[in-house]
Amino acid sequence: MRLIQRLLVAAAAIAVLSGPASAQDSDADKTWTEVRIGTEGAYPPFNFINAAGEVEGFDVDIAKALCAQMKVTCTFVTSDWDGIIPALQNGRFDAIVASMSITPERSEQVLFTNKYYNTPGAIAVPKDSELTEATPQSLAGKTIGAQGGTTHAQAAEAYFPDADVRVYPTAEEYKLDIENGRVDAVTDDIVVLTDWLKSDAGACCKLLTQLPVKEEIYGPGLGIALRKGNDKLKAMFDEAIVAIRENGEYKKVQDKYFDFDVYGE
Rank of each mutant, 00 (worst) to 15 (best):
L139P: 01
D261R: 07
N247I: 07
R106W: 00
L88A: 00
E172R: 14
D59W: 07
K127N: 06
Y218P: 03
Q154T: 14
G149M: 02
T119M: 09
T135M: 02
N180S: 13
V242E: 12
L3Y: 14
Y117H: 15
G202E: 07
S138V: 06
D27F: 13
F58Q: 02
D259Q: 04
G91L: 06
D238Y: 01
A10S: 13
I190P: 05
I49M: 12
G264T: 01
L233F: 02
K175E: 11
M100A: 13
L193I: 12
F48T: 03
F260Q: 03
A23I: 14
E105H: 07
G141N: 10
D80M: 13
I37K: 01
E130I: 13
D59G: 05
T73K: 14
G264P: 04
L66D: 06
T73R: 12
E54T: 08
V167E: 15
I37A: 09
D61T: 01
A146P: 03
N230F: 03
K198V: 00
I144Y: 02
V165W: 07
K252R: 06
M236E: 11
V35T: 02
E239W: 04
A201H: 09
Y263D: 06
F93V: 00
G219H: 00
K228I: 14
Y117N: 06
I62P: 01
A203S: 12
P212L: 00
L111I: 10
K252D: 03
N118K: 08
V191G: 12
F260L: 04
E34I: 11
R227Q: 12
L139D: 03
N90E: 01
S18W: 15
F112H: 06
A201L: 12
V97H: 09
G221K: 10
D162Q: 12
A146W: 01
D82H: 11
M236W: 09
A158R: 11
P126A: 11
K234Y: 03
L139K: 08
L233P: 04
E246V: 06
A15N: 14
R92E: 10
P169L: 09
F48W: 10
A122G: 08
S107A: 15
W196F: 10
V191E: 15
E54M: 09
S129M: 07
A87C: 10
V72S: 04
F237D: 01
Y263C: 03
P44D: 06
A52V: 07
A140D: 00
R92Q: 10
I144T: 02
